[in-house]
Amino acid sequence: MSALTETPTVARPSRRPTRRTENAPKGPKESPLSRVGAMTVMLVFTLYFLIPIWWLFVAGTKSSSQFTSTNPLWFADFNLFANIGNLVAYRDGVFLKWMLNSALYAGAGALLATLFAAMCGYALAKYRFPGRELLFNIVLGGVLVPATALALPLFLIFSQVSLTNTFWAVFLPSLVSPFGVYLTRIFASASVPDELIEAARLDGAGEVRTFFTVSVKLMFPALVTVFLFQFVAIWNNFFLPLIMLRDETLFPVTLGLFAWNSQVNQIPELRGYVLIGALLSIIPLIILFLLLQRFWRNGLGAGSVK
């Protein structure tokens, strides 16, 4: 037992000095004071962001009677699984349907949005054609327009073609990501060398094939970033579904939980469902971030070095 724990501690000192000598000459030496200061600030912010999630988790484990009467930041009887069971059983599992809807809107939407943004950004970066800068500037302008401001005009347009209250009403607007175009363009011009495209052309690859086999791979970190951003944006998008959808079976989880929450005054048992539902609804985002952050960090790093 003691031997087991000792091995790593022995191994560590031998590794550390080499690293330090490697790093030491590069950055300015930081004082312990500034390090402590920085850590404190980060700690405060970490707590600031994590305490609500902790509160949500603790609340999710409580029965409704203990929810008001016990310490909000510490556990009472552990009812997490009973709560989840109740939530899933409520109204024939409509909550699961909402989760699936959200996954579909966000997953498929972000995938296609990333593809479109990548193609557009790549084209803007690598092809010269009249009006290119104008087009790019218009897209840049699009970054500045908040999605919320577009929801109502979109509703009126979709009403004209009788597409409100359908899957498409939420899905189609999700396919557009001006920020994605901006990011992929910057990234493509930085990380896809013209020479490489030229070489692919000489080898007889068509433009489309070059894009999918060569450029996409080089742009991958940026694409992951765009995907992640867009996925989170669609998952959290609330206003557009609120305006577009009436049919409960089409709701994403955000709208469904909001609708329940608006009923809490008169139907108090919904409060428990909203809490546990909110807890479950952030899990996919956490998983996605953990899975993809490796690529994401690479991407940010690569951009900064160039």
């Binding site: 009403s159 409100t164 009436r246 409960e248 709208l255 609708a259 608006s262």
Partner: peptide, 26 residues
């Protein structure tokens, strides 16, 4: 056919007005 949403002031009234405007109110 039942359609649903949040309570009135939570957004459904605003939706009703939008729908009346667009001509597709329930």
């Amino acid at each position: 056919a039942v359609q649903t949403g949040p309570n009135g002031n939570g957004g459904t009234y605003a939706n009703f007005f939008n729908q009346l405007e667009a001509g597709n109110a329930p």
